[in-house]
Design a protein around this nucleic acid. Structure first.
Lengths: 183, 183
DNA sequence: TTCATTTTTTAACATAGGTTAATTCTTTTT
DNA sequence: AAAAAGAATTAACCTATGTTAAAAAATGAA
């Protein structure tokens, strides 16, 4: 049997494996990974909230993902291939992270079977999340998408600006405002 | 360095590893994986074209993905967890596949380092595809999405019904018709 | 605490894409 | 080859969400 559910045990195991990694508190609002750069690290979020975002062809800022406690923040495509990416990472509140450098990642990947298993679980989990978000985007109205986010991640509404949430939902800030009132 | 680009070499390597797998020609239009079932196999497409689709909350059929030659077709989430999924798989032309059962997958996963590497490349690649599709869905107009698909996968237009393509693009068949005329 | 800046709301108007329904074109069956 | 079934187009009308701009509210700096 191939287990892919991320368990508390995995988190604990991962914490041990990266126990000696650099730790950092990223202050609220800091953009700690710049767009159009090679992402040489990924981050295990110990506490706090971050988002990834990018600029669309008209220069509008689009939030692509929110990530909280016990998630891995980082642009997998850039990290794995060590190529430039348009995505940026920003802390939305003071956020404590463990920094996992590319070198350390490769080392763990080559020496720890446990690490490889956890890494592949995370990537499958992220794939399912993305796939689900696409389904929601394609089959639900703006109001329904708003309700789903509120239901599942109400904390984000306390911590992120509404314009960040609006672009995450695929609507304008004004539409989000309209939806919130109609409630 | 961790390579994730799927190369011809990978395809060849994978073909060798699954050389003794059952092979089958799925006739055009056959739904070879039913919705609301556990997907006990995934499929390596030797030739042909398939799609995954599901039914939205109003019963409308939505195409989620198209896959051709040298891709892996299957609902990763159901296959890996051996749980039921709302997604279905359908051949859009006579399609030759190699069938990889869950048992065989687990066996290869546990015995072949090469297989694990190829499998993880595929899952990262699929993750990037999904993520990119979400970006397109959220930042491009229907016309732009149509143009992109036509540019990158014009073969799909020769093989799939327009209603399948329309739902893939997140629009109605009538809107797709409108767009095609305006060209 | 007041001033300045940023964020959020409100409102009028515009538009991309949806809905319904009828027509035409294509494919399959007899 | 005719009839029937299925797929694609067309057209009139409708609605959710976008756009622009201004006002109000909240936050932060002095």
């Amino acid at each position: 049997m191939i287990e892919t559910e991320i368990t508390d045990f995995d988190i604990e195991e991962l914490s041990k494996l990266i126990a000696d990694s650099d730790e950092r508190i990223i202050p609220k609002n800091e953009i700690f990974m710049m767009p159009n750069s090679i992402h040489k690290s990924i981050y295990f979020i110990v506490s706090g909230l971050v988002r990834t975002f990018y600029f669309d062809s008209k220069g509008g800022e689009i939030t692509h993902w929110f990530g909280g406690k016990n998630t891995i923040a980082g642009v997998i495509s850039s990290f794995i291939t060590q190529k430039s990416t348009p995505y940026a990472l920003q802390a939305l509140e003071d956020t404590k992270v463990k920094i996992l450098s590319y070198e350390k990642f490769v080392e763990l990947y080559n020496t720890s079977h446990e690490f490889v298993k956890i890494a592949s679980k995370f990537s499958v989990k992220r794939l399912i999340e993305m796939s689900d978000k696409l389904v929601v985007q394609q089959t639900k109205t703006a109001k329904e998408r708003y309700d789903l986010l509120l239901e599942n991640h109400s904390d984000i509404f306390q911590k992120a600006k509404l314009k960040y949430i609006a672009s995450y939902l695929g609507i304008t800030q004004q539409s989000l405002s309209r939806i919130r009132i109609e409630k």
